Computed example of a mutant assay.
Amino acid sequence: MRTVIFIPARYASSRYPGKPLAELRQKDGSTKSLIRMSWEAARAIEGVDAVYVATDDARIAEHARGFGAEVIMTSEACENGTARCAEAAAQLGEAPDLVVNFQGDAPLTPPWFVEGLIAAMKADASVQMATPVLRCDRQTYENFTEDRRNGRVGGTTAVFDRHMNALYFSKEVLPYIAPGKLPEPIPVFHHVGVYAYRPGALKAYIETPVSELETLEGLEQLRFLSAGLAVRCVEVEARGRLFWELNNPEDVARIEAALEAS
């Protein structure tokens, strides 16, 4: 099964303009750009045939080529990462059997998150799209609730049925838990913003109109759910590592602290 990873990257972000080029301090005191860290994380994933940065921005493209990444230029019309992956995949000479959308703002994504996702897709040919979910530990749950208390839109949570098919994704913390009643294990799952699609799922996405829920939440995967297309959630394990994305400038310190502790 030919598997290709795309790292969608755009410069114009409403919450963090120029985010892919943001420099983060490493454990040794040096710095690396967010897009380079994400590319290196993607390159560490086993069972992948190629990794590309997909962007519409010449600054990002030049920077990515400078550290050795293969770049596919996409149009400015791409409304989100899924659309950018679909456009990039169409430019490949050999069509992939599986496309992985690896977020350019999640350099803390361990390789086994994506390897588990790919394995789940290979094991069940009926699954057209899948995404990882990670049960929150106390620190991650506190990160979520702190962001919401301060009016920041941070990570995304996922709820799913007993067959592991997604019921909903939200930038709110779901399910709601009354203050002082946090159970163990914590029943909140952090949605890891990685997606694996079969070509038919990407085609269906492009052909499906934008949904109201997708627009309200700002979450592209809700278009699949609104259209009645199943999204399989694959639970992954942290193995002692903190996972968080760089959604806001405030997240830089969180990620740098995690790098220092690694």
Rank of each mutant, 00 (worst) to 15 (best):
S262M: 10
A238Y: 01
C85R: 01
A44F: 01
A261Q: 12
Q103K: 14
A69M: 11
T145Y: 10
H163L: 06
G240R: 02
Y197N: 03
L219F: 04
L134W: 03
G29N: 06
T74H: 03
E40W: 14
P185I: 00
M1I: 10
A119P: 00
E76A: 06
T3M: 06
T215H: 02
V210F: 10
R152W: 12
C136R: 00
P96T: 08
L98I: 14
P209W: 14
G47T: 12
P199E: 09
V71F: 06
A54L: 00
R43S: 15
A58W: 11
L246R: 05
E70Q: 08
P249I: 01
T131V: 01
C78S: 15
V188G: 06
V114R: 01
Q103E: 15
A261K: 07
A201I: 14
L167C: 12
E220F: 02
L213D: 13
E94V: 08
D57H: 13
A86N: 02
G154F: 04
E79I: 03
I60M: 11
C78T: 12
D251E: 14
A77Q: 13
G116P: 09
K203E: 04
P17Y: 09
Q91N: 06
C85E: 07
V71W: 09
V4C: 00
W39I: 03
